[in-house]
């Protein structure tokens, strides 16, 4: 596991595209200590590796797919009415390079 320290937390939040208040990074560091300790404890629970990682709590498998029939098209004005920056029927953002 990566070592958790302040630079790592700053980098992680930057990659998530937000900045945090300075004291929040310290709170987070404390929270990480607790979480990592508890997860280490969980790792020591006997027989854990015998279990497959669970996403679905019981057998939820289905055998059907969506029929390929068009529906639900939005009018362009509708599609864009919640966007803060539009131009000529499209969303306008700063120039994307690369």
């Amino acid at each position: 596991m990566k070592k958790v320290d302040l630079p790592l937390l700053r980098d992680a939040s930057a990659r998530l595209l937000f900045l945090m208040k300075e004291e929040e990074y310290l709170t987070l560091l404390e929270e990480f200590k607790i979480l990592v300790k508890q997860m280490e404890k969980i790792g020591k629970i006997e027989g854990l590796e015998d279990y497959e990682p669970m996403t679905f709590p019981f057998d939820v498998a289905i055998d059907e797919l969506r029929e390929d029939e068009p529906a639900e098209v939005l009018a362009r004005e509708e599609a864009l009415e919640n966007a803060g920056s539009t131009y000529m029927g499209q969303i306008k953002i700063a120039k994307v390079v690369g």
Partner: peptide, 19 residues
Amino acid sequence: ENQDVLFLRAQRNRAKVVA
């Protein structure tokens, strides 16, 4: 690098709890 000891471990533990 962390999935094994965090996310996947938590998901495994969820399975154990559900069992």
